[in-house]
Amino acid sequence: MILRRLWEHDLAWSFRRSPVTIVATALTLIWVGAALLAPWVSPQDPFDMASLNLSDAFTPPAWDEKGIGRYPLGTDNQGRDILSTIMHGARISLGVGLAAVLFALVLGVSLGLLAGYLGGRVEAIIMRIADVQLSFPAILIALLIDGVARVALPGDRHDELAIPVLVLAIGFAGWVQYARTVRGSTMVEKSKEYVQAARVIGRRPLAIMLSHVLPNVMGPVLVIATIHIATAIITEATLSFLGVGVPATRPSLGTLIRIGNEFLYSGEWWITLFPGIALVVLVLSVNLLGDWLRDALNPKLR
């Protein structure tokens, strides 16, 4: 019964008609699966120094004449299996991306709701901060926060806290678009009579914001969040590529690309190419999914 209603829902209908979206969803699911199950399905644990064999370093992919069957995509400079590091790297990239988006979403939606509902000085302050932040590139904001954290935290603590710091940095760099969207929709909803009815009943502003306005402004937010996941993964990869992201002992896709980059000109192309392809496929499929969601939820394009 529920499955049937889901199948006949507008979204399901537009989903079935778009082969690109089906492929993108399949790829995304494969990625999420690989990332979640990495510790159990990957051929090797790249973080376990004991299982690494330095004499296997720089093994080319399995189809090369010097390749070894155990390492289908070859190994890096420390003898780590590229396929395994990609799976573990995707785990970190996806995890950081999702957490950063969640952080940006909660922050942006809260501030947007407050600005749109309360108006006046609160709105002016929040939106001017947003305008100022919008005039800087997101990557610069993230670099700035990461840099401050590096100075503030003692050296040995920094590597442990690298991932939470990264999540905060990327999240802070992205809250503005949520806040702007939510503020706009909140102003529309606030003027509707159902909000006035709740005020006549005597409900407090916070209760009205959370129980009445919030459910009615979340539609566009979900679309932004989906597309933002792809952007956040790219930002994380960029930071890690620049060497300010996750530490090399727990590499994300960006870290892998940076490590491989050093060996690109000496002929070991597979160390950087495969993580690069992995990143492109992951980001592209999440992005396509977001584009589809945006179009499917837009009544003007139906």
Binding site: K192, E193, Y194, Q196, A197, H212, P215, N216
Partner: peptide
Amino acid sequence: FQDPYASLN
């Protein structure tokens, strides 16, 4: 309220 299409959440 006036507009029954806007007065119910």
